[in-house]
Amino acid sequence: MINPKAYLTEKLFQDDIEKVPTRNGYGEGLVQAGEENTQVVVLCADLTESTRSEAFQKKFPERFIEVGVAEQNMASLAAGMALAGKIPFISSYATFSPGRNNEQIRTTIAINNVNVKIAGAHAGVSVGPDGATHQALEDIALMRVMPRMNVIYPCDALEAKKATLAAARMKGPVYLRFARAGTPQFTTEKTPFQIGKAEVFHEGKDVTIVACGPLVYEALLAAQQLEGEGISVEVINNHTIKPLDQNTILESVQKTKALVTVEEHQIAGGMGSAVVEMLAQRFPVPVEMVGIKDRFGESGEPSELWDAFELSCPHIMQAVQKVIKRKIA
């Protein structure tokens, strides 16, 4: 059953639910953050339109810095600007930032402990036709092992906007992960969002699904269909991968005693890994993990790729059925 306190849209399971890319929410969040605080500056590495930094550039040209194709420079320039009191957001594709510039993020942002926000767009295979080189599948792993880094992966455009604003309001380095393709806009203004606080979107008692990013919607679809088959599934939107909301996840898993993790990222080192690292120590249960299985992406349409990489609703349902069998055994 949908958790009424999640205030999800009434159109949740209707065919005409609006589809918006999460990067759009980043663009809107940047503008509002810029209005709220004059210290917010945005840097972009030649991807201004695509990362949706464009709206900020138009509204605050004096606080927008084009750095060209130079992601390493961008990370350290931002570190310098933060040292001079600014709140820089750096925008690029996740394969380049935090991919290419990982060491600069480590030394000049994280060890340096400065207030820089890293926005990685085009995460996941759902980037689509661009293919493997532009589909970031390792960025959560890169960022979540870095001390001091906060890692946030919003589930839809509205949550992406809230996450961007929350990142601007908090002090310290943050990694924000966004997707290219339009995905269902299913949360509302009233849906709670707080960094470090996972939200139960669907209540159940047999299995817990912990999901993040646009695949949270696929997990909800799976939960709804499984309900018809008599399987009661709890779905948690775990938008903050670090710091992990241990209590919300633990409470649910102690109740259901079975877990499925869902993410559009390598299974190795991703959000699911963070969850099972915690549960292995505190409350071990049978686990199935839905994610990328140690391979790179390829060209195709987003929905086609979600199916091919076994990430969408039917695969999540299979994982739930599998974990239930292991639970009974």
Binding site: S76, G80, L83, A84, G85, T107
Partner: peptide, 26 residues
């Protein structure tokens, strides 16, 4: 100390970021 450094090649970027704020923003 102003900043953290060691891995070579990132100091001029940081200095440029600081200088940009000084000259063009503040």
């Amino acid at each position: 100390l102003e900043t953290t450094s060691g891995p070579l090649g990132s100091g001029l970027s940081q200095a440029s970021g600081i200088a940009y704020v000084g000259k063009h923003i503040d």
